[in-house]
């Protein structure tokens, strides 16, 4: 981690998290995280060439579905596996102790680490989106007005990744990387089925169960909200209300998780 933190703290206190974020991003680039883009490019090129030969009438659809799904899956893998090591790696390498000896608060460190991974995901997702646009243009030779929905789908994937990263960071504040991964994946999967859990309560006709499943429904992050891949692939218009509601939902949830993570991390005995 860079040693410019102290000087930054003197000149502009809240910029500390920014410095940590930039260094986290540099660290990710140094760790060759962005190499996944090569694999993504190969998948897109393969799909663009192959699908026309083995299927009928879905060349464009496959490019959009495969591209968006790949952006989501690669992003999730990065968010979870890097997210859970954001804190533990620093503790393991003992760099956290020298860092916290500087005028930096623990929550600033956490927010910085979170921001750094988010920046990495943003760069990675943006480059993949460019690749997707290129493959789409190769297949259809033009862009349509409905293709704008693809950008909204990418934005929603980013919101989803922001939420998953926050969860991974939260668990990594008090657990081992392996367990944190399991917890994050578990919450993600359950979050996809949040609506089913609520509906399950309705089916039971048991008032207590209904209340319980409803509480779980509102407590869990509802990842289903962010899935508009199918709509985007069919060029359906995405209502503006859904965009701002999802943005606010993700932002509020991330704030709650980061506050919880800061509370846990601040109270943790690092000796």
């Amino acid at each position: 981690m860079s040693t410019t933190v102290a000087s930054m703290e003197r000149s502009f206190p809240r910029a500390v998290s920014g410095v940590v974020a930039v260094n986290t991003f540099r660290e990710a680039v140094r760790d060759r995280i962005l190499y996944n883009l090569i694999f993504f490019a190969l998948v897109m090129i393969g799909a663009a060439i192959l699908v026309g030969q083995i299927s009928i009438g879905i060349e464009r659809l496959v490019i959009v579905n495969l591209g968006l799904s790949a952006i989501s899956i690669f992003g999730l893998i990065m968010a979870i596996f890097i997210g859970v090591s954001l804190v533990s790696k620093e503790i393991e390498k003992r760099t956290l102790y020298s860092l916290l000896a500087k005028p930096i608060r623990r929550w600033e460190f956490l927010v910085g680490r979170y921001g750094g991974l988010l920046l990495t995901l943003l760069v990675n997702t943006s480059l993949m989106t460019l690749g997707l646009a290129g493959a789409l243009f190769y297949v259809s030779r033009h862009f349509e007005r409905g293709d704008a929905s693809i950008l909204f789908a990418v934005y929603f994937i980013l919101l989803q990744l922001a939420l998953v990263t926050a969860l991974a960071l939260f668990f990594s504040c008090f657990s081992t990387p392996v367990l944190s991964t399991l917890y994050t994946v578990g919450i993600y999967v359950v979050g996809i089925f949040a609506t089913d859990i609520r509906d399950f309560g309705q089916v039971t006709k048991n008032p207590a169960m209904q209340v319980m499943t409803r509480v779980i429904y509102y407590l869990l992050p509802n990842f289903h909200n962010f899935n508009i891949i199918s709509a985007a692939s069919h060029g359906e218009a995405i209502p503006f209300s859904l965009i701002w509601q999802n943005t606010l939902y993700a932002a509020l949830y991330v704030v709650v998780i980061l506050i919880a993570a800061s509370a846990v991390f601040s109270g943790r005995d690092l000796k």
């Binding site: 083995i54 299927s55 879905i58 579905n65 495969l66 989501s72 899956i73 089925f193 899935n227 891949i229």
Partner: peptide
């Protein structure tokens, strides 16, 4: 659809290709 974990449209493309094949 449930098992697809949200990637149902991609799975639909795969099944359609399978049907064509």
């Amino acid at each position: 659809k449930k098992m697809s974990l949200g990637y149902d449209s991609l799975l639909a493309d795969i099944y359609w290709t399978r049907a064509v094949q």
